[in-house]
Amino acid sequence: MNNELTRAYIIDLYNNPLNYGKLKDFDFSKKGENPLCGDSITIYIKIKKDKIENISFEAQGCIISNVSASILTKEVKGMTLKDFKENFKFESVKEKLLLDLSFSREKCARLSFDILVSLLKDNII
């Protein structure tokens, strides 16, 4: 958390997460964990016409994994599955995170992205 502004932005996003909570109407969900620190995240997703119509998450754990999940869900909501598969990379979340992540913290940041990729792989793509 490299400077005061970034810190304020991150903590605000942590206290007021985007797309938080279980969707009332979802097609698939998947829970993932980082056994190292005990973080766990569940992602819920609603697909319509090959598009991510709605997506949300629930999380327990550190700021970085929470905030990354907010950013991820915001970025991919409305995206076509094809677009996600071909163009969306973890780096797209990382850029928005504005943090200079150490190796160990990068795992926290990746958690929600990895869950989403594996959820889609299991069920759709």
Binding site: M1, L36, C37, D39, C62, I63, I64, R105, C108
Partner: peptide, 21 residues
């Protein structure tokens, strides 16, 4: 309720090394 890894990251900005986990 701050996660210990976050505490360690915050302290790291002040160049304070502690263990978390």
């Amino acid at each position: 309720a701050v996660h210990s890894h976050d505490i360690a990251s915050f302290l790291d900005e002040d160049n304070i090394a502690i263990r978390a986990g």
